[in-house]
């Protein structure tokens, strides 16, 4: 009897572990699909644009710890650029239009508002800035 009782408990736990594995796999696939979701996006709205030069748009969320410092880093590293911080949880239309899935996501747009680059995560932006710094130092 005790063995039987143990058996159904073990089976229940195995089922639960299977569900965890399934959930993890589905969630991972969904995230990969979202990450792969690339394509043309509309030009930046005029209110965000810097007519004279390029614009960095930093999409952040209230929970994003790295977004604020990243925007400051961008402003310091690229004084010619215009840096705008957008709260993705409030600007939902804008976030949907630019397919923002995580924060920070940074768009780099030219003076006409065309999105030229897209960086997901602070690391990607810093890498880009380091590359630019390396180029200007060697040039």
């Amino acid at each position: 009897m005790a063995l039987l009782a143990l058996n159904w408990r073990v089976w229940l736990v195995i089922a639960l572990l299977f569900l965890f594995g399934l959930a993890r796999r589905l969630y991972k696939q969904w995230r990969q699909r979202v990450a792969a979701d690339r394509g043309p996006v509309p030009p930046l709205p005029a209110r965000l644009r810097n007519g004279k030069g390029h614009t960095w748009v930093v999409f952040s969320t209230p929970l994003c710890a790295t977004c604020g410092p990243l925007a400051d880093e961008l402003a310091a590293a690229d004084p010619d650029g215009h840096v705008v911080r957008v709260d993705a949880t409030r600007e939902t239309e804008l976030s949907r239009a630019y397919r923002i899935r995580s924060a920070p996501t940074v768009l780099l747009a030219d003076s006409r508002g065309r999105v030229r680059e897209r960086f997901v995560g602070a690391g990607a932006v810093r890498e880009h800035l380091a590359t630019l710094a390396g180029r200007s130092a060697s040039g």
């Binding site: 229940l12 639960l16 569900l19 965890f20 594995g21 959930a23 969630y27 991972k28």
Partner: peptide, 16 residues
């Protein structure tokens, strides 16, 4: 207890 285990397991394995 299993409700807690299920939700904690979901958070640990997926981050949800």
């Amino acid at each position: 207890a299993l409700v807690v285990a299920a939700l904690a397991g979901l958070a640990a394995t997926t981050g949800i």
